[in-house]
Nucleic acid binder design. Structure first.
Length: 173
DNA sequence: TAATGGTTCGGCG
DNA sequence: CGCCGAACCATTA
């Protein structure tokens, strides 16, 4: 049986822009999923992919790779135009992710801000939705922090959240 | 239904 | 400031 992710396997690309690896999976027209890990193997495990795959020539994947590389060089890359495959996710999650995409590069908002913007007071549920964000960086969940200025959490490790906020100039060394 | 979070807010020392 | 405790609410078991 072939899951959607299996079918998209041919469009998997893994790069190592930092101390950690970044896996990117796209389908024909949309970004399906991104994933961080400190090992290349961890990416494959995180994505549930067993065999190694040949890198794809997909133009979507190529521009994503290029943009990601620029992003890690510190360039102000705008990911807001990337089409995301949101099929199968709950309406609430979609609202949270869509709202989070509106936070500008280099700026942050609180979990509460996101919640209120989409008409709920479930700020903890927002945290949960961001914890399940399949599109890190593109959906900049790292720009959502606590109301009191604390960083809050990050599912793939707080160190990565800090790194991203440093790259964007929000955090100093 | 109960438990669980990437939270918030008020209260107290 | 730091440490509770209660409250918020969408998932998941």
């Amino acid at each position: 049986m072939l899951t959607p992710l299996d079918r998209a396997m041919k469009n998997l690309l893994i790069i190592k822009p930092d101390l950690f690896w970044l896996g990117m999976v796209v389908s024909e027209r949309k970004v399906v999923r991104l994933c961080f890990s400190y090992s290349e193997k961890g990416i494959r495990e995180g994505l549930g992919i067993k065999s190694s795959q040949r890198p794809s020539a997909s133009s979507l994947l190529q521009s994503l790779k290029s943009d990601m590389t620029d992003y890690w060089k510190g360039m102000r890359v705008d990911f807001s135009g990337y089409p995301l495959d949101l099929a199968g996710y709950s309406p609430f999650y979609k609202k949270v992710w869509t709202q989070t995409r509106l936070i500008p590069y280099g700026e942050v908002r609180s979990y509460k801000w996101v919640a209120e913007a989409i008409g709920t007071r479930g700020f903890r549920a927002v945290g949960k939705a961001l914890g399940n964000n399949p599109f890190p960086i593109i959906v900049p969940c790292h720009r959502v922090i606590k109301e009191d200025g604390g960083l809050g959490g990050f599912s793939s490790g707080l160190a990565i959240k800090r790194r991203l906020l440093k790259i964007e100039g929000f955090l100093k060394d």
